[in-house]
Nucleic acid binder design. Structure first.
Length: 304
DNA sequence: TAGCAGGAAAATC
DNA sequence: GATTTTCCTGCT
């Protein structure tokens, strides 16, 4: 199916897909190709129009609008976030960057794999589990694979999963898949609750065991921000630590700053993660997640 | 609560 | 080509 979506607010497809929120999009000859919702979506931006081609009728303009959150007022977000020099420059430099609304299960599984990895590596791992456990479909003479269902991964052996280059992540992914396919994760409830309660739900325990083993504060924040519309979630990865140290040192705990002066590789302890999260969310406000995304882009560009 | 293992690939030197 | 780093979490 071919169609166009008329943009009635700021949007930049490239910034949005290159900001590390999604792992199944590739740019080729001016087009972006992504596997979403069990099908394929081919998109390019022509100023204020998105030109789309999709593999199924369910991937329509309503889906695209929903996925890219095009019905939301980005100007309002920008004006709320661009309160100082750093943020207004970032908002201008990466104007049109949006958070997407991706599939919750896919987002959870992807970020469980994201520990101790970089983006090319994550894309490789995700691609491998899709090719092995996803449903195959054809488009444009090519094979494509949908993201596997939780049951498909839960039914695999850890050894088989490890074959996809997951390493120590394989048992975590399988456990998480089992919890999700077993109905122990109520994503709808997570999405409906405010940040703190939603977060608690992701950390809930059953028989004294975490339901989602392998999901710590960072992964939880990513799931809340990228798939549950918690725009005030503020995931803190190594890049955000760099950005905060550079532009907002006062948001980092003094003790951590001291340690980091000794060793630039110093990592946030769980306690420091919480402290930083609280101060950053307070500082950046209800759209802290957008601020985080802009900081990420800014510091990545500055370091490259 | 601090330190460390985990595991493979990318980035860096 | 070797070393370091990489969108971290769990365990001791």
């Amino acid at each position: 199916m071919e169609f166009t979506v008329l943009l009635n607010g700021p949007f930049n497809l490239g910034y949005t897909l290159e900001s590390g929120q999604v792992f199944r999009w590739k740019r080729r000859e001016g087009w972006w190709y992504g596997e979403v919702a069990g099908g394929s979506l081919k998109v390019r931006q022509e100023e204020d129009v998105l030109r789309c081609e999709t593999s199924s009728d369910s991937l329509d303009s309503a889906f695209v609008t929903r996925y890219f959150r095009l019905d939301e007022d980005l100007e309002r977000v920008v004006s709320a976030v661009a309160k100082d020099e750093t943020m207004s420059r970032a908002a201008e430099r990466f104007y049109g960057l949006r958070l997407v609304r991706q599939d919750r299960w896919e987002c959870l599984a992807s970020f469980v794999l994201a520990t101790n990895a970089n983006i090319p590596r994550i894309e490789k791992m995700v691609g491998a589990i899709c090719a092995r456990y996803g449903a195959k479909f054809q488009l444009g003479g090519e094979d494509h694979y949908s993201f596997p269902t939780p049951a498909a991964i839960a039914g695999a052996s850890v050894t088989d999963l490890a074959q996809c280059g997951l390493g120590y992540r394989a048992p975590f992914l399988r456990r998480v898949s089992g919890s999700v396919s077993g109905g122990q994760v109520d994503f709808a409830a997570v999405a409906s609750l405010p940040y703190d309660e939603a977060r608690r739900l992701l950390f809930s325990e059953l028989f004294g065991q975490k339901v989602l083993l392998g999901v710590g504060p960072k992964v939880a924040d990513c799931v809340l921000l990228y798939s549950c519309e918690k725009d005030d979630a503020f995931p803190i990865d190594v890049w955000i630590v760099k950005a905060l140290a550079k532009y907002y040192p006062r948001l980092l705990p003094p003790s951590f700053r001291a340690r980091r002066r000794e060793d630039l590789r110093a990592k946030l302890s769980p306690k420091d993660y919480t402290r930083t999260s609280v101060s950053a969310r307070k500082h950046f406000g209800r759209y802290a997640g957008y601020a985080q995304q802009l900081l990420y882009m800014t510091v990545r560009e500055a370091e490259s």
